[in-house]
């Protein structure tokens, strides 16, 4: 397949990339792993006239602990996350489910988050763990909570000239557990349904904080707020998890398509939420 003609600028520094992006406005797109952008260009679904290649910018590829959170840089590949010693259970569980090994070697977590594909995995994980996104432009840096960053179908809240330079996953004080359950037709497929779960237990064993977020069942990755509300403050039990699972299913509004009818997908949300809560609890209590 043959994309339309385009130009590429290889940026050597972050400042150079940001200046070029400011200059290009709507015509420019950031090229990191290119694992969504290039296929879209090959299919001529996207036809940006100018790409700003950030792959040679130093110091953007780190995964490190800073000030109580894990920081993932714009050039950290999915495979780096798989290999890293990630403390957060939800992130660690999701990483091997992202795409396939070939795509993971090239694609970036920040790129996937910025892409805001409702069938993408990372934004559900980030919603569940309540991550923050760092957006940088030539005029400075903004730290955006994930709920504000993920706006709509393939739409983020970046402003013109901004790019995602970092994602921050908070560390939790208490006993935490998490999981990511994904139904896919084959490796590398987008999710038919996936559910991200995060649980943080208080000293008395009750649930201090809960994260439940859904992939591929709405026009955007979705926090199942009602399910979280049912969980928080209560002692974990099968009945509680079943109630939360029902609430999560109610938060899903999937479409019927080749991956299955809506009622099926909604039911899998229920099953996955129940199973995910049980496995997250087991990890938290481990």
């Amino acid at each position: 397949m043959y994309p339309a003609a385009f130009e590429v600028t290889k940026a050597r520094t972050l400042d150079e990339a940001l200046a070029k992006l400011a200059d290009l406005g709507d015509d420019g797109r950031v090229l990191a792993g290119g694992q969504s952008l290039i296929p879209m260009m090959k299919l001529r679904v996207a036809a940006p006239t100018h790409l700003v290649d950030i792959n040679e910018i130093p110091d953007l590829d780190g995964i490190k602990q800073v000030n109580g959170h894990m920081s993932v840089g714009a050039l950290a590949r999915h495979a780096d996350v798989v290999r890293a010693d990630v403390a957060n259970h939800t992130v660690a569980a999701a990483a091997p489910w992202v795409a396939d090994p070939v795509v993971r070697n090239r694609g970036t977590m920040c790129g996937s988050i910025a892409h805001c594909d409702p069938e993408g995995d990372w934004n559900s994980v980030m919603l569940a763990v309540r991550a923050q996104v760092v957006a940088t432009s030539s005029s400075g840096e903004r730290v955006i909570p994930i709920d504000e960053f993920v706006k709509d179908f393939f739409t983020n809240s970046l402003q013109e000239g901004e790019m995602v330079t970092e994602v921050r996953v908070p560390n939790y004080a208490g006993a935490g557990g998490g999981d990511y359950l994904k139904l896919e037709r084959k490796i590398g497929d987008y999710a038919t349904v996936a559910v991200a779960i995060h649980l943080d237990l208080a000293g008395d064993g009750t649930i201090a904080q809960a994260g439940v977020a859904l992939t591929a069942v709405n026009h955007v990755n979705t926090r199942a707020s009602d399910a979280e509300a049912i969980l928080v403050g209560n002692a974990p039990s099968e009945e509680l998890f079943a109630a939360a699972a029902d609430a999560a299913a109610a938060a899903a509004d999937p479409v019927s398509d080749i991956r299955g009818p809506a009622e099926y997908k909604r039911d899998v949300v229920r099953v996955f939420t129940r199973r995910g809560l049980a496995s997250a609890l087991a990890k938290a209590q481990d």
Binding site: R185, K186, I187
Partner: peptide, 28 residues
């Protein structure tokens, strides 16, 4: 398990690329 070439009611082929027409890998 996964592979079929199907069509919608307008005769659009659902399976015109390897995202929709599935070929198993060693993993499956």
């Amino acid at each position: 398990n996964m592979q079929w070439l199907t069509f919608d009611e307008d005769g659009n082929c659902i399976g015109s690329n390897f995202m929709d027409y599935l070929v198993p890998t060693a993993y499956e």
